[in-house]
Amino acid sequence: MAEALPLMVTANRLTDGAVVYLTHSGDWSERPAASSVAGTREEHAHLLDTARQRGALAAVIEPTAVPITSLDRPQPASLRERIRRHGPTVRPDLARA
């Protein structure tokens, strides 16, 4: 089933497992940004096409589309993805910026 819109594509980087987000330029960023958001199915397809063309998918594992809260502040909607984004809630000292 297709994820609800808007969404971002997230994955873990192959070399170190770090959580990353796909940008429209086909790069992976450690922080979600406006450039990561797909507001429509077409934009989502474009995100993945660009990533494929640039060979970006080989640099990560388990790329997954996840719903976000809004187009303006691209934060993951689910608790699971918010924890992935920010780090373990029980270790604020390890929180990601």
């Binding site: 873990n12 192959l14 497992g17 780090g87």
Partner: peptide
Amino acid sequence: RRLEGRLSEDEFRPLRLLNGLYLQLHAY
């Protein structure tokens, strides 16, 4: 071989798991 792309993740996953290496939420 995995890092060089000669093994896919599907091929590598069972090998890493047999060596206790999982992928969790934040990292390996």
